[in-house]
Simulated scan of single mutants.
Amino acid sequence: MTGAGPDDGQGRTPPPVNWAVVLDQLEGEVLAAEQTMARGRAEEIAAWGRRADDWVPPSTLGPLPPDLRERAARLLQHQLAVAEALVERITQSQKQRDVAARMSYGPTRPVASFIDQAL
Rank of each mutant, 00 (worst) to 15 (best):
E29F: 11
D98G: 13
E88P: 02
R89Y: 06
W55E: 07
P65M: 12
A100M: 09
Q25M: 05
R41Y: 04
Q94V: 07
V87S: 14
H78R: 13
A46N: 15
L64R: 09
Q92A: 15
N18K: 07
G5T: 03
S59A: 13
A85G: 11
A52T: 12
A83T: 10
L31W: 01
Q117N: 12
G3T: 11
T2R: 10
R71T: 09
I115W: 01
G106E: 02
P66Q: 09
R41W: 02
L86D: 14
G106L: 09
P14L: 05
Q77I: 10
L119Q: 11
R97C: 04
E88I: 10
P57H: 00
L75G: 06
E43L: 13
A38P: 01
A81Q: 13
S104I: 02
R74D: 04
T2D: 10
Q92R: 15
V30Q: 14
T91S: 03
E84D: 14
A20N: 09
V22E: 12
P66A: 13
A42P: 10
P6S: 11
M37T: 02
E43Y: 04
L61N: 01
V56L: 09
G49H: 14
D54I: 01
L86R: 13
V111R: 11
P66W: 08
L80R: 10
A73D: 06
G5H: 07
A46E: 15
L31R: 13
R109I: 05
L86T: 15
V56M: 06
P110H: 02
E43H: 12
D7G: 08
Q117T: 13
H78D: 05
E27V: 00
M1R: 09
L119C: 06
L64W: 09
R102A: 11
R39T: 03
A38M: 04
R74T: 08
P110L: 00
A118T: 04
E70N: 07
A85T: 12
L26D: 03
R12Q: 00
I45K: 15
E88H: 11
N18D: 12
L119R: 14
P6Y: 08
A42S: 14
V56P: 01
R97D: 15
Q10N: 12
S104T: 11
L119H: 07
T36Q: 08
P58L: 04
S59M: 05
V82W: 08
L86F: 08
Q35F: 01
G49C: 12
T2H: 10
L61C: 04
D116P: 05
V21M: 07
Q94W: 07
Q117M: 08
Q10L: 12
L119S: 06
R51F: 03
S104D: 09
I115H: 05
V56Q: 08
V82Y: 00
V111W: 00
E34N: 14
D54T: 02
R74G: 02
L68V: 03
P57I: 05
Q25D: 07
P66H: 08
K95P: 01
R12M: 03
R109H: 05
D54M: 01
L26T: 01
L26W: 06
G106Q: 03
G28T: 10
Q117L: 10
A81V: 07
A33Y: 14
A118C: 00
L68E: 01
E29M: 11
A47C: 15
I90D: 14
S104G: 10
